[in-house]
Design a protein around this nucleic acid. Structure first.
Length: 562
RNA sequence: GUCCCAGUAGCUCAGCUGGAUAGAGCAACGGACUUCUAAUCCGUUGGUCGGGGGUUCGAAUCCCUCCUGGGACGCCA
């Protein structure tokens, strides 16, 4: 599906291409090898028309004429039959500017209303299978701000891709194995002993949080001191299993209340249990990508353009996190995903190159693995940075954040900035139910439109069905600008998908909301003039659809009243 | 030391596969509610796009270099 704007660009580009051919055949221009890759763009300046072409500047060198001269020639040769072009001008260094009958864009309104929740949907994904893996937190605690940002980003990206015709799977990789889990086991056992009156200590790098104590208390309430007499291994395993189950359930629930639900929860432990990690090590080894050094087994990452080689099997025989992660990613591709997208914190960026290297070694296209590295989140309250430390258990959790600022504000703030930009999250601003808060600005626009529709409904007044000429009653600047921007929605969506950048959408929605507010304040939708009311109703209905669809992609609710 | 990200208005950030006079929100200042929701609108103020070179018709955008901040460089994850 191509948008009205896209179609217009194509039409104009086609007309220009013909114009070049005509100019050449009539001897105004030298013969060309081939037409340069010119673009039809939308000028920033309104005075520069609705569309502009840079073709003349690009031709200048080959044709050996000044750009403005070429532009004039093309202008003379162009055939705009059937297009709503009012005038063509040559301007600046040689731009060809097209000025359209402003009403050309109004035709989009009935189309939006017909498509409704599908307006903006694209099919360029072509049904390709994409996996988006995000959050993937250690199930040893609660979710922090980094996880929260990842959740908002990942979920929105998944929604956007899905809206663009990809077949998307949301996946959470549960890091329920490895060194951290061993530490957790030690800490749980220590707490277990302590709570049952036996001396025990938690190692300095262990888990000291109060939540662990609560968990163990809960366990004792259920099972008493039954673990005192069993082997250490069994004791730890039992406590760990119990704890992970409990923690994971909380994480799941928190994410759900954040509007995020997963298709797949993938356990690292399963990989180990099924021997898949060993298999992948053997596989790489037999392919000649491993070597032994200092008693450990190393992956030749250097052969894939990575700075350093990486240990894959420790000298004590235990696989590293990297080994398990290779197995996991191998598994992803084996499941048939055409694209695999990971969302990782900035502290994992060193991991990207070697993981791609490992995939290349295993025969997969490393570019099919895309890793979005997101920068850190800093929380501000009362203008001060909120200090956080996960080790001491002193940090703001996602649950608390949702409690404090609400789900919609939190999600909006997290996707408001591009992933590679540090995020300063102002808690006071996010919580403020005022004009300072961008979330409400967008939601309010939606609620206002709903209010109009409700009002009309309640009066029971029937407006005549819109006739073909009614749209042309929309002549006000505010109306035309708004309609024009609504027409951009499909392109905004595909740009967001292409760049994996939901923050584009927040800006777009904010702008549409602004145009609606502006229109609302200067013109009445429902008035004595029934035909005009009818036309304006189409305009606000279409606006509501765009706002609603956009918010849905960002996981933000579109309230009918506020 | 090497690599990644960032440096744009007082603050937080867009814009970066080159386009015309660099944008938004907040903050500041001045106005608008007997009207479909004032969580809104209208107006004003605000810039060495970190510095310096280069590439070309044209650079915030591409290349080189330097400076500053953050992160990564582990048989941690």
């Amino acid at each position: 599906m191509s948008s009205a704007v896209d179609q217009m660009k194509k039409n104009l580009a086609g007309a220009l291409t013909h114009s070049v051919q005509k100019a050449v055949s009539q001897g105004f221009l030298r013969d060309l090898q081939e037409l340069p890759d010119f673009i039809i763009e939308i000028p920033r300046e309104k005075d520069h028309g609705d569309f502009a072409a840079n073709l003349a500047m690009l031709l200048s060198k080959e044709v050996r004429l000044p750009p403005r001269k070429i532009a004039e020639i093309l202008k003379g040769c162009i055939d705009l039959q059937g297009l709503p072009v009012e005038k063509v001008e040559v301007a600046g260094p040689g731009f060809i500017n097209f000025y359209l009958d402003p009403r050309w864009v109004l035709e989009i309104l009935p189309e939006i209303i017909t498509l409704d929740e599908n307006y903006g949907r694209q099919d360029f994904g072509g049904g390709a299978k994409v996996q988006v893996e995000f959050v993937s937190a250690n199930p040893t605690g609660l979710l922090h701000m980094g996880n929260a940002r990842g959740a908002a980003l990942g979920d929105s990206i998944a929604s956007i891709l899905s809206f663009c015709g990809y077949q998307v799977i949301r996946e959470f990789y549960i890091n329920d194995a490895g060194h951290q889990i061993e530490l957790l086991g030690d800490s749980l056992q220590a707490r277990y002993f302590q709570l049952l009156g036996r001396p025990a200590e938690i190692a300095s790098e262990g888990y000291h949080g109060e939540d662990i104590v609560e968990t163990v208390k809960g366990f004792i309430n259920l099972y008493g001191d039954s673990l005192l007499d069993v082997s250490e291994e069994e004791r730890k395993n039992t406590l760990v299993d119990y704890t992970l189950k409990e923690k994971l359930a909380v994480i799941k629930e928190t994410l759900l209340s954040f509007g995020v639900s997963y298709d797949v929860w993938f356990s690292e432990q399963d990989l180990h249990k099924k021997g898949v990690v060993r298999e992948i090590v053997d596989r790489l080894n037999s392919m000649g990508f491993l070597y032994e050094h200092d008693g450990a087994l190393w992956f030749k990452a250097g052969e894939f353009g990575v700075e350093k080689d990486e240990v894959i099997l420790r000298s004590n025989g235990a696989p590293t996190y990297f080994a398990a992660d290779i197995a996991y990613h191998f598994n992803k591709f084996q499941r048939g995903f055409d694209r695999v997208i990971n969302i990782w914190g900035a502290d994992h960026h060193g991991h990207v190159a070697r993981m791609k290297g490992a995939m290349a070694a295993l025969g997969y296209n490393p570019d099919a693995l895309q890793v979005i590295i997101m920068q850190l989140v800093r929380l501000y309250r009362d203008g001060e940075i909120v200090r956080m430390s996960k080790r001491s258990g002193q940090y703001v959790t996602l649950e608390e954040l949702i409690e404090e600022v609400g789900r919609d504000a939190a999600r909006y703030f997290f996707v408001m900035r591009s992933a590679d930009s540090h995020l300063d999250f102002d808690l006071d601003l996010a919580r403020a139910q005022s004009n300072e808060n961008p979330v409400y600005y967008v939601q309010y626009a939606h609620a206002r439109i709903c209010s109009i529709l409700r009002q009309l409904d309640e009066t029971g007044k029937k407006l005549p069905a819109p006739g073909p000429d009614d749209l042309n009653l929309l002549k006000e600047e505010a109306e035309l600008v708004l309609a024009r921007r609504l027409a951009d929605f499909p392109e905004e969506v595909s740009m967001s998908a292409k760049d994996l950048a939901p923050h584009r959408l927040t800006r777009y929605l904010h702008e549409v909301a602004g145009l609606l507010h502006s229109f609302y304040n200067s013109h009445r939708v429902i008035s004595q003039d029934e035909r005009l009311s009818c036309a304006r109703l189409m305009l606000v209905k279409a606006t509501r659809i765009v706002l609603c669809n956009g918010m849905r992609l960002l996981g933000i609710q579109a309230p009918e009243r506020m």
